[in-house]
């Protein structure tokens, strides 16, 4: 469980450190009046949706770190047979990096209120994401056809499970992506989709990071 403990130690450490710092020299019994923030905002100067997303990313990080921990623990047993990863995964990785890059460009464009660039960059980002998903399916096919079936060996099973759980997260992202695109068609003001483009960009970078970790794990073992 070392991998999980490291990830959770970072998350919990951050939470505990932040909370203790917020509460350290405060003497609530001795203070009166509407102190604190000027507005009814929270301690973070960001939108609630962003806080929600960050919390969700912490949940997803916990989930993937647990899978990685399980992977390491299961590997120790004698029946584990190393399977070669399909080469197409390298191409898929490139697709996902490009998707992330174009999402970042879309984000930069939405801040500058450039509607046309937002649309085109979003479309390209979506295209590369779909290419990644198609490539993953191809990798499954290839893996399966080479005789590495799900129930054959725990190493195969982990390959399918890790890629599937990652893909499920991408699908969730694509759903928000399609809604953003749909909204862009029907409304005039680009800044109304600003939040969802910004948050999706963060989500895409996060999923890229997770994929790089998973891919490295699969390659190295």
């Amino acid at each position: 469980m070392t991998a999980t403990l490291i990830v959770l130690a970072v998350i919990m450490g951050g939470v505990v450190f932040w909370l203790i710092r917020q509460t350290l020299n405060v003497q609530p019994w001795a203070e009166e009046g509407p102190i604190g923030q000027d507005h009814a905002s929270g301690p973070f100067s960001v939108q609630p949706a962003k806080v929600g997303l960050i919390v969700f990313l912490a949940v997803a990080a916990s989930l993937f770190s647990l899978f990685v921990s399980a992977y390491f623990q299961r590997m120790e047993f004698g029946d584990w047979k190393i399977a070669p990863e399909p080469f197409v995964l390298w191409i898929n990785t490139a697709f996902l990096i490009l998707a992330s890059v174009f999402y970042q460009l879309a984000r930069n464009a939405v801040i500058k209120n450039q509607t046309a660039q937002v649309k085109s960059n979003l479309l390209i980002a979506g295209f590369f994401t779909f290419a990644f998903m198609g490539g993953q399916l191809w990798a499954w096919q290839e893996f399966h056809n080479s005789g590495y079936v799900l129930s054959g060996n725990p190493a195969n099973a982990f390959f399918y499970v890790l890629t599937a759980v990652h893909a499920a997260h991408i699908l969730g992202g694509l759903w928000v992506w399609s809604r953003t695109l749909f909204k862009l068609q029907s409304i005039v003001e680009t800044r109304k989709v600003r939040t969802s483009v910004e948050l999706c960009a963060i989500y895409w970078h996060f999923l890229l990071l997770i994929w790089l970790v998973l891919f490295a794990l699969l390659l190295s073992t």
Partner: peptide, 16 residues
């Protein structure tokens, strides 16, 4: 979490 951290009313600090 988001409500407790982001939607508190004026004067409601964490330690209140």
């Amino acid at each position: 979490i988001t409500t407790a951290f982001q939607a508190r009313t004026r004067g409601m600090t964490l330690m209140r």
